Each structure stands twice: as C-alpha cells, then as structure tokens.
Simulated assay, not measured.
Amino acid sequence: MTDIRRGQLHSDEKPLLLLIPGLLCDKAIWEEQIRVLSPLVDCVVADHGAADSIETMAQQALRLVPPERRFSVAGHSMGGRCALEIARMVPERLDRLALLDTGFQAREEGATGEAEAEKRMKLLNLARSEGMRSMGREWARGMVHPSRWSEPVFEDILRMIERFTPDQFEAQIRALLHRPDATLLLPSIVAPTLLVCGRQDVWSPLARHQQMQELMPGAHLEIIETCGHMSTMEQPGDVARAMTDWLIF
C-alpha cells in the first residue's frame, strides 16, 4: 500500500493526485505545482470539455483515476466544487482533499442569485461579441491582485482564457449557476483537508474559506498573501509549499 508520511514513500508506486482546474482554466493553472509535487505524486489534470454541470465534470475527472486506486484531489475555484462532488461520490477512496479559492454553497435565490446570473451572462455576451481575450481582460482584473495587472502572469491568464470558446464558457456558466450545495457534505469529510485562499480574493473571499474551516473539523486554512483569486499562478511557490506540507504530513 502506498503511504506518504513525513516525506517517505512506502511503495514503488507513487500516490496519485487529481488536479481540477476552475472556470476557463486548464493545465497551466497547475504548472508550478506539478513541477514541485511530481517527485512525490503522479499528477493527473482534469479537462472539463463541453460539460455543463458540476456533477458531470466530477464524473469525467473521476474516470481519469483507475477504479481500484485511492487518490488525493485538489480543485481550484469551480474545480474545488468538482472536488467536493468527488468527495461525495467516492469518500472511501479519497486520501486527501485540497480546496483552493472556491466555495461550497448553491447560488442564492432571489435578487442576489439573479444578479450573479446577470453578471455572468454579461461576460458571456462580451465573449461572443468581442472575443474571449477582450472578455478575459475585463474579467481577469477582478481575479488577480491589482499589482499583477501589468505583470507577465496576467498575459499568461489571458492566453489560457483564449484557449476556450464562448460555447465552452457558456457550458461552464450553466454548471456554476446550477451548482450543488455542499453545506451538509463538509462536516462528513474525514480526509485531511487543505483550504487555500488568496488574502485579496474578492471572488471567493477569505470569509467563505473560514466558514468552510468551521464546518470541517481538522481542516487547515492557508492564507496566501498579496494574492487574488488565481493563487496557483499568482503565488505558485507559496501554494506549492502548502500543498507539499498537505501531502507529506
């Protein structure tokens, strides 16, 4: 049996880590973490394709893992919601869980929920009328720390967004607008859990991660300083260190 404790691997087979990207994100979101963690674990990155529900995304990601294998899963943003669904589907196979810059509640009813839908559809309309890059330039300003608007990482994020189509964007918006609620799930999760949040994340704020920590006995919250929503790209080294500690202890 494979086990990681205090940096020791007790098997010829490395443990498996399933990495799940968020909205309009792909493998690039995990690039530095894969580089740092690969000596410890085999990293597999999910691709949401044309999936238009969180449940379908979770099922697709789960198919990347051999059915007999135990594994750990880390999800960023929308990917964190997929990771929670995997924890719901196969809790007996889950070694560890990491939730980064994400949330756990369903879309609110009433005016607040309608405002969220309207905001997301406005971005979709911009993507269809002016292209994914133009939409991404507007959207990403709220996703990263303002100090990074003129840094190379901002261009990296725009290039990543450009790899998606408006139809894929629409499918992912549908998934988020109809996202499942995980409030009752959180207290039942027994896998060692890491919560990561950028200090200046305005999309999935720190207060939400503190709520999750209160609902998950034993969960560890790591706050990433000078960082917005895109923590794995904004402060990749800090996130990689937090994930290394999560994997080996």
Rank of each mutant, 00 (worst) to 15 (best):
R5C: 03
Q8E: 10
L9Q: 13
K14T: 09
P15R: 10
P15I: 08
L17K: 09
L17D: 11
L19K: 01
L19T: 08
L23A: 13
D26S: 11
D26P: 02
I29N: 10
W30P: 09
R35C: 08
L37W: 08
L37Q: 00
S38F: 01
S38G: 00
P39F: 02
V45Y: 02
A46E: 13
A46T: 03
G49T: 11
D52V: 05
I54Q: 00
E55I: 13
L64Q: 12
R69P: 04
R70E: 14
H76T: 06
M78N: 09
M78L: 14
G80K: 06
G80V: 04
C82L: 10
E85G: 00
I86V: 06
A87I: 04
R88Q: 03
M89L: 15
R96G: 01
A98K: 11
T102D: 04
F104S: 07
R107S: 15
R107Y: 00
T112E: 14
K119D: 03
K122R: 14
R128S: 12
S129W: 06
S129C: 04
R133H: 07
S134A: 15
R137M: 07
E138F: 08
V144P: 08
P146N: 06
R148C: 14
E151Q: 15
V153P: 00
I161M: 13
T165W: 03
P166W: 05
D167S: 10
Q172C: 03
D181Y: 09
D181S: 10
P187Y: 07
L194G: 08
C197H: 02
G198R: 06
R199A: 15
R199E: 15
P205D: 11
L206Q: 12
R208L: 12
M216Y: 04
I223S: 04
T226C: 09
G228R: 05
S231G: 01
T232A: 15
Q235D: 06
Q235W: 01
P236N: 08
G237E: 14
D238E: 11
A240P: 00
R241I: 14
D245K: 11
I248S: 02
